[in-house]
Amino acid sequence: MNEAATYGPTAAALIGIGLYGVLTHAEPLRRILAFNLLGGGVFLVFGVVARRGAGAGFDGDPVPQAIIITGIVVAFAATTLAVALLLRLARLRGDSGND
């Protein structure tokens, strides 16, 4: 269970770093990035839980693993929506570099 002891605190640190970025950055793109860091930390918590639940001949509990895969894909979909809104906002403000 070495891995769980190493990656558990890592996940906690990533959540803190991501949250700090979301709260202190003014630029929307940087906030989206930081939010994804936060998400990475949350997924890693699930990964540690999966690892701790190893059994029945599997390296990890397959249920949290499946949930993480679902989570990563949904987080990506949400990020694309956020980026689309951001680019639209930039166009409306006439702020965008090459549009």
């Binding site: 906690a12 918590v45 839980v49 059994g55 029945a56 249920v63």
Partner: peptide
Amino acid sequence: LSGALGWAILSLPTPAPSLAPLA
């Protein structure tokens, strides 16, 4: 927050609950 979360993760109960046998 990170410290509290890290502490919570490290003090999760052992043996960990697992759905692996059911899966």
